[in-house]
Design a protein around this nucleic acid. Sequence first.
DNA 1: CTGTTAGCGCATTCAT
DNA 2: ATGAATGCGCTAACAG
Lengths: 332, 332
Amino acid sequence: MRKRVTIRDVADRAEVGVGTVSRVLNGHPKVSDNTRQRIKSVIADLDYHPHFAARHMRTANSQTFGFITDQIATTPYAVKLIQGAQDAAFQNDMLLLIINTEGNPALEADAVKLMLERHVEGIIFATMYPRIVTLPPAIHQLPAVLLDCMVADGALPSVVPDEYGGGYLATRTLIENGHERIAFINLHQESLAAKGRLRGYRAALRDHGLSNGDRYLRQGTDWADSGYQQAYDLMRLATPPTAIFCGTDRIAMGVYDALKEMNRRIPDDISVIGFDNQEIIAAYLRPPLSTMEVPFYMMGRFAIEYLLSGSDEKIQKQMACPFIERESVRTI
Amino acid sequence: MRKRVTIRDVADRAEVGVGTVSRVLNGHPKVSDNTRQRIKSVIADLDYHPHFAARHMRTANSQTFGFITDQIATTPYAVKLIQGAQDAAFQNDMLLLIINTEGNPALEADAVKLMLERHVEGIIFATMYPRIVTLPPAIHQLPAVLLDCMVADGALPSVVPDEYGGGYLATRTLIENGHERIAFINLHQESLAAKGRLRGYRAALRDHGLSNGDRYLRQGTDWADSGYQQAYDLMRLATPPTAIFCGTDRIAMGVYDALKEMNRRIPDDISVIGFDNQEIIAAYLRPPLSTMEVPFYMMGRFAIEYLLSGSDEKIQKQMACPFIERESVRTI
DNA sequence: CTGTTAGCGCATTCAT
DNA sequence: ATGAATGCGCTAACAG
């Protein structure tokens, strides 16, 4: 860890004033090519790096965004949220300061405080699953975007997946493949995700004249077990469904197990669609599971780009969930 | 975004000098309780936050570590790596600056440069899976720790999982449960992880007089498919194994499928152990999979704690992989 | 115990 | 086109 080399050192060695060095550092036009070259080579020789904090203090420009998560970082999904934000930030010469609060409100307040002290230029607050949150009031002192969550009064811009659209598209896809008896095993119903997906399912059915009084609707829990149970229940019906739309890929895992036990072949005997596109599950299931993707990566990107845009519109962005086709759906 | 309030404002309002304010800010003892209280209340009134960059410039103390990843952030495992580091750092008043390079060497160099400019107090370089890496030379200008990887010349401290120990423990656990014909379906053999786990498997067998010339050893790929294939192959043997140790949980997924097709019950007919403890798979498989955990969280913590310790010893830390008991192993 | 002062490294006037 | 001077907000050293 040798002595830090400052702009002064560069200036001295290049026999110019610090101002000139600063100018070439910042790509200022009015520097003769001659001196510019000389300075650049000195910078390289000395391996000089500008002191970020000094520049920051001078320019009031921290080139940093804060990224606060409740426990998102724990879940496999949402890594992509971070990564999308990361990439978008990096491409714009910004870095991310990440704090994980485990949903502890005291920590959240601390986190916001720390970010304020570090003069981040904006804050992203991301949650593990879509929900309504209450935030430390201090967050309003900065541009902020909510990721995968929203505040009750809509006072903060937010970006969330279009659960409704996803539910609709999954169901419509099945319909377009000729299915008419389409079951839906939803995840735990308190969740915003569950509500949205369910509305989409019902709407698609209705729009295609296939409403059936929720005869094939089942309430699951988000765990494979419930998929297993409900699949059994469903298949024992007098006229069982020809397709099962699962509220999560994990539910689909359970459905697969039950179906296999019953010697039903996927997709020949019955089609299955999941939700979440957890690669680790969906891609490795046998056969690979067709499912809806929650566009975490793009959501992360969008949040940063919104911050970068400087807009103060309180948009409530819903991002579409695309259908990921694999091998669990068959046309009949 | 109202005008920033500085230490000057606080001093004026409290009718003291800035030095005194600075002292209470830094918990300096020699301040009368009286003035301390007054200043504190002014700080609260004004909602004053010290300017981090200014302090940093003055103290040469950035309270920040850099965390560079190749693509770790993409994978579900390693989120825990970040989280462990995160938590340990936060508890010591440090924050993490995270950059994901996608394994792009140019980006890696940029990342190190940015971290140098921001005066991080140390760098953690983490990879998605254990391997030998080459790093931008500039990284040597700072304390650095490698996570889940190492450099060829051992010139940098590193912390990796004890793959050997994990392989050994998994095998020994099976042995202690009375199994003697123990198969091992390894993941793709180029990986360090595969080599270590295999050595552990062989050593445990040998130490218990169970060596069998690798009769039950199979080479898989890391995908469920290979587990499926190899399980069929294994079970068709004249004297099939009574237990299968899988190089990854994904392989175990395939093994489960094959076993179920063959109407073998887990664990009654055959025991299975996985590796990785990918909760999303292991906990949801039916029955839940007993497996070896790679201690990512603790590895992350350790890396930070090592940095914090200020040690310059080039330790090569191997962290034990504990056995996570679920329901796929039975005593015979 | 407390006020005053001198930089930390840089970007930006203002001269030249 | 370039050098010199100023101050961003803070901590530490020095006086008292």
